[in-house]
Each structure stands twice: as C-alpha cells, then as structure tokens.
C-alpha cells in the first residue's frame, strides 16, 4: 500500500527520479532567424553530455537557455524539477544550481582570484566570509592553483584563469555544470590542464553539458554526444556510435572536417 502510493506520487515531487535537465519542443528566434528548432533533450543526473556541431548551429544558445542567459519563445525547460518557463523565482533557483564556464573566462578583473570565488556564495547564499574562503580554497586546491588565490586574473595564464572560473562556479555547489567552449580561447599548450580538470569533475559524478570541439574529450568522457546543425539536434549517440558509425550525412561531413 505504502509502496503503491509512493510510486504514484513520485513523478509529482522533485526527487532523484527527476532528470537533471529536460527540454521539450524548445524554439527560439533571433528576429527572423530560427536559432533553436524543436529541441528535445533529456539529461539524466550524473550524465556527461558533449554537444558539438558547426559554428552557428545553436550549441551555445541551447546551453545558455538552461540558465536563462537566453530566453526561449516556446517549449518547456525543466531543470532539476524546477520549471523554468514558470518564471520568477524558479529562474533564480536554477541559476544557483547550475554553474557555467565561458569561452572568455569572464573572471571579474578587479577582484582577486579568492574574491572571484567568494562573491556569489556570500551575496547569494549569505554565508560568512570565513566559510566562503574555506570553500573557495578547497575548490582552488581541486583545480590545483591554491597558490594563486591572492593574485588578480590578469596575472594568470589563460589556462589558470579558466581553472579559476571552474572553481568559482563550483563554489556555489552546483548540481549541473554548463561549459560553453571552455578551451576554444586557450593557447594549445593550456588546453590539457583545463580538460584534465573537467575530467576530474566528470569522474566525481557531476552532471555536465559541454559545448566543445575537443573530440578526444568527447570520446573518453561523454556518456552521449549531441550533434547540432542549423538550430536542430540531428543526432544523439554514445561516443562509440557517434564517431565510428555516425547516422547522419551532415554528421559525417562535420567529423570529416574536424579530424
């Protein structure tokens, strides 16, 4: 009896059974340009998704919709059980639960590395400075740059800055991490240190959505690869299937171009 009622009520309450992200028939336009076309994607908890595709295909736009840096025109996005399209408070909640890493790092240049990491936890979560600094140092150690805590972003290399950006996002204890081409602005010799950090994060079970052209990363880390072109999701497959037996003509063309 108990079990039956639990099962019956499960879909209604938020819990472990909810997917991390569910996008249903999402559409978005920039003026007359149809940027996202009927996007349907469900990302389970702990799942690692890599999104790839030619430039202008809507990859970045899609993940930016998940924390509402972009608004959608139709469809539904549910993140961790919160319906984004319901608006208002849910958007704030979701932004607190999703961390984002940008191509251009977007560190705050007038603050030290430590201050970059403590600002949001103090102002949004309302924790004390001491607590925030303790958490920040924990994550700076995890991305292996605790010794840079007192420096300003401009004093660091690109790879170090991006690792700080990852630490800064982690300080909010997000359930989902969004990566928007995190290695595209880096010098080649710094790509590895950032990818290594992301692999560590994946191994710890973080739910991740990564827009990236690093196919080695996709092959070794992703649970599923999503291929987008012209605002549509053309193919979703495991890395093995995706790379060795791509279904779609345009996927094959794309893979031929980048390899």
């Amino acid at each position: 009896m108990n079990m039956v009622s639990e099962i019956a009520s499960a879909p209604r309450s938020r819990g472990a059974s909810d997917p991390a992200v569910r996008m249903e028939d999402v559409n978005k336009w920039y003026g007359s340009f149809h940027a996202l076309k009927n996007i349907n994607l469900t990302v389970g908890r702990g799942e690692r998704i890599v999104i790839c595709g030619p430039s202008g295909s809507g990859k970045s736009t899609m993940i930016r919709c998940i924390n509402q840096l972009e608004t959608i025109h139709s469809g539904r996005i549910v993140v961790d059980g919160h319906d984004l399209t319901a608006g208002g408070r849910n958007v704030d909640l979701i932004r607190q639960e999703t961390g984002m890493v940008f191509q251009q790092f977007n560190l705050f240049p007038h603050m030290t590395v430590l201050e970059n990491c403590t600002l949001a936890p103090m102002k949004v979560r309302g924790i004390t400075k001491a607590e925030a600094e303790e958490t920040a140092m924990k994550f700076l150690r995890r991305v292996r740059i605790p010794e840079q805590a007192a420096k300003y972003p401009a004093q660091l290399s690109g790879g170090q800055q991006q690792r700080v950006a990852i630490a800064r996002a982690l300080c909010m204890n997000p359930k989902i991490m969004l990566f928007d081409e995190p290695t595209s602005a880096l010098d080649p010799e710094m790509v590895k240190e950032v990818l290594d950090t992301m692999v560590d994060l994946a191994n710890e079970g973080m739910t991740m959505l990564c827009v990236t052209h690093e196919m080695g990363f996709a092959r070794s880390v992703a649970d599923r690869v999503v291929f987008m072109d012209r605002g549509e999701i053309l193919e979703v497959a495991t890395p093995d299937t995706f790379f060795d037996a791509p279904q779609h003509e345009r996927t094959r063309f794309f893979l031929g171009q980048i390899s």
């Binding site: 840096l69 932004r95 999703t98 984002m100 560190l107 705050f108 949001a120 102002k123």
Partner: peptide, 14 residues
C-alpha cells in the same frame, strides 16, 4: 564587457 554581467547572472547574483 557583456560577459561580466552574464558571469554574475550565471552565478545567481541579482
């Protein structure tokens, strides 16, 4: 730069 506001927003800062 616009990215500064976006980074702040993404961190949940209002």
């Amino acid at each position: 730069p616009k990215g500064q506001r976006e980074a702040a927003t993404a961190l949940g800062l209002r």
